[in-house]
Design a protein around this nucleic acid. Sequence first.
RNA 1: GGCGCCGUACCCAAGUGGUAAGGGAGAGGUCUGCAAAACCUUCAUGCACCGGUUCGAAUCCGGUCGGCGCCUCCA
Length: 470
Amino acid sequence: MKLNFFNTMGRSVQDFKTLEPGVAKLYCCGPTVYNYAHIGNLRAYLFDDILRRVLEYAGYKVDHVVNITDVGHLTDDNDEGEDKMVKSSRETGKSVWDIAEFYTEAFFKDIDSLNIIRPTVTPKATDHINEMIAMIKRLEEKGFTYEAGGNIYFNIDKSPDYGKLALRDRQDLHAGARIKVDSNKKNPHDFVLWFTRSKFEHQAMVWDSPWGRGYPGWHIECSAMSMKYLGEQFDIHCGGIDHISIHHTNEIAQSEAATGRKWVNYWMHNEFLIMNKGKMAKSSGNFLTLDSLADDGFSPLDYRYFTLGGHYRSQLQFSKESLSAAARARKNLFDKVIRLKGETNNTPSSIISQEGQIYIKNFQEHLSTDLNTPRVLGELWLMLKDVGLGSQDKLAIIYEFDKILGFNLENLEEVEAESLDSDILELIDSRNNARKEKNWEKADKMRDILLEKGIIIKDTPNGTEWTRNV
RNA sequence: GGCGCCGUACCCAAGUGGUAAGGGAGAGGUCUGCAAAACCUUCAUGCACCGGUUCGAAUCCGGUCGGCGCCUCCA
């Protein structure tokens, strides 16, 4: 299966070829673990998951690395801002290390509940300080750094093609548009590799280094850890669209300066989730977590379905209304799968018919054309409505699609008929007696009573069924 | 100030030169004592607006209006 992805480097859809045949090396920027991930953050990891699944579907062995940033960085846009980890620590009374551990666990819990396949490696920044120091030394030896005011800076004027990812000329850069430029910098866009003299007090995490006790700049961790786990060159680097101009630009500058050659072949960036006419952001309080969605009765898989309905490179409009639509669609899909399992005695076709193969072919085309998951969902519904297709074929095709969609439909089971309280069973019994007597008024009244107790009644030709009103 | 993206039905959202996918909601119907579920049918002569190119434009070009993002940590 041939894959084509939009590469931010070059801004075009390009054929995907790996450096090493059959192996795809993928690095995705991960979370800073000072707070819960909000659903906008999670959109990025859902995108990573689709990408990873498609690569595996296409036959690649995937080395998937996601960093855990447990070193704090700037909180916000004013000079009085403090380290995020320190801030969280102060507010909760826990140590920065406990904060990091707590939110790292929360992150894994979130991605597990979204059916995101765990990355092959999830390195923590604090476990790789030595690798970062080694890389800074390498840059220092090659003359890309300078020391000023106690900090070590990367000199972007030594990188001729600085800004190539962001498509910007140095001259166009308007530094300090919103913040004061660090007066230690030779070029306003130089960035810190190692801090020893932070303007922020109470830096809780510090390490010894050749330049003094301090802590690393933000960008260096991704360069150091990706190279450790994937090598000095690898295939794909992804992250949010906001990373293009600064973080990834700086990662490229320092990585290629260190090795003297091209670092990453494909750059893939996901767009933002938009809520209330603006991006979801922790700092503005304009954000929701998976848990807060659960409070409104949404399952994590509802959110997974929702994000699949939009293309990863388009902003996605979030609202309770749009999520409800996705939740409804997801439920309809699951119901349909359960019914198909019943009809086929849980036996999908081992060989899909000629007509069915068309859907598989379209499915693959949609994915190989820059991961068009909205079209995959469209294809799925067309297939399900196709009267010329047998149930066993449909089930087999669904399972094929689900390798990417990731709803774990093969293991989907009808909710076990839990034992009901005897008083509810009695109500159902007596309602059926009322129905036999054609006492509809009484029967309807009892149905209302059951509904109040959270039981939905369905009278089918095979008898009365009930489900819990979830 | 610089850079980038976007504007498609009630909502979400595909489609980037050949005559508007899909989902949700809504409407009508079959079935049912009624309901629910299921199934069927229906739902944009038009893609912000104005010009232009073309046999043909939601799609390309120019302009106008509106929205979002980045240039600061940030998915």
